[in-house]
């Protein structure tokens, strides 16, 4: 073991040998991660060049080169699904972040019941997405749904709306559920970020005659840049990866109107049992994710550089 920074030794191998005991501590973590992440990454990339049999007897797979990729990228459905994915990800992220930031700003002061309110707002985030999906399916129900009934009762429409079974409303309806579920994640992240804004700055600005909005823009926002970046990235990733809500609520339908990459991949893999094509699809998604991952680590480490130690 060595504590604090070690001077660079010319021979990396010698250093590894010297520190061999240290690796024992991370070995279990690394082992699990390698098995459950390292191997699958390799296998996904590998399979993406094959045509796999529905029996999943992998000995019978056929090498097809980049055919799977070509098939996906040139198919018409891919374009639709990609557009859906972009809409889903962009709108979910935007509204979740906006609501979350608003809630954080509203909660960033002391008042009775603040902790309780924060707790209540976080409940949708901690409950299972499956429960959330069923709750909203019931709210959206075409015959007995309370939202449709409310719309009729308040005179907005004269017949209950069929939210989920309609190509125009299915995706927006899902986005509402998603925002409901995850806005409070953005809220606590931003709330934590707000704790780092020095109170004196606000007082000084107020003395200087800055209004609420000016203070927010010139003092609060610059302090929140780092947290905002991380929060938005995490939301983007979570939304690109959403499966449960779209799958349970519409399974991509009707007529693919709410199909996004993840649900499409799942269908390909586990309903049509075409692991090869699904793998290629995964790799494409994977590349997108990795480039976002790069920015994520950059965002996290950028701060490390600013404050070493």
């Amino acid at each position: 073991m060595s504590v604090s920074t070690a001077a660079r030794e010319p021979n990396v191998f010698a250093r590894i040998v010297r520190h061999r005991a240290d690796y024992l501590y991370i070995a279990p973590a690394l082992g699990v991660m390698l098995l459950v992440i390292g191997y699958p990454i390799y296998d996904t990339i590998y399979l993406s060049f094959f045509n796999t049999p529905p029996s999943l007897a992998m000995a019978d797979k056929i090498f097809v080169g980049t055919d799977n990729y070509v098939r996906i990228l040139t198919s018409e459905a891919f374009l639709d699904v990609t557009i859906n994915t972009l809409i889903w990800t962009a709108f979910s992220t935007f509204f979740a972040f906006a609501l979350g930031l608003g809630a954080a700003l509203a909660l960033d002061r002391q008042f009775v019941g603040r902790g309780l309110l924060r707790g209540i707002l976080l409940i949708p985030y901690v409950i299972s997405a499956v429960a959330a999906a069923y709750i909203w399916r019931w709210l959206y129900h075409s015959d007995f749904g309370v939202i449709g009934a409310l719309a009729v009762a308040s005179g907005i429409t004269d017949r209950p709306i069929n939210f989920l079974d309609n190509v125009d409303t299915s995706l927006p309806s899902l986005i509402v559920v998603n925002v409901w579920k995850e806005f409070s994640f953005a809220m606590i992240m931003m709330l934590a970020g707000l704790q780092t804004v020095p109170e004196q700055l606000h007082r000084a600005a107020q003395v200087d005659g800055a209004g609420v909005f000016q203070r927010f823009w010139h003092i609060t926002m610059p302090h929140l840049k780092g947290v905002t970046l991380v929060t938005v990235l995490l939301l983007l990733v979570a939304n690109l990866n959403s499966f449960t809500i779209p799958w349970i609520m519409t399974a991509g339908g009707p007529a693919g109107s709410s199909d996004i990459w993840i649900t499409a991949i799942y269908q390909l893999a586990f309903e049509r049992i075409r692991f090869g094509v699904a793998s290629a699809y995964s790799v494409i998604l994977f590349v997108v994710m990795m480039s976002m991952g790069y920015f994520y680590v950059r965002a996290l480490t950028g701060k490390d550089e600013a404050t070493p130690g």
Binding site: M33, I37, Y39, P40, T44, V237, F275, S282
Partner: peptide, 23 residues
Amino acid sequence: LFYSVLLRNMFPAVVFLMPLFIL
């Protein structure tokens, strides 16, 4: 190693589903 562990956050669950199922 530390950052590759963190990168796990970036991976969609479904991407790992097939290979893990096979595994």
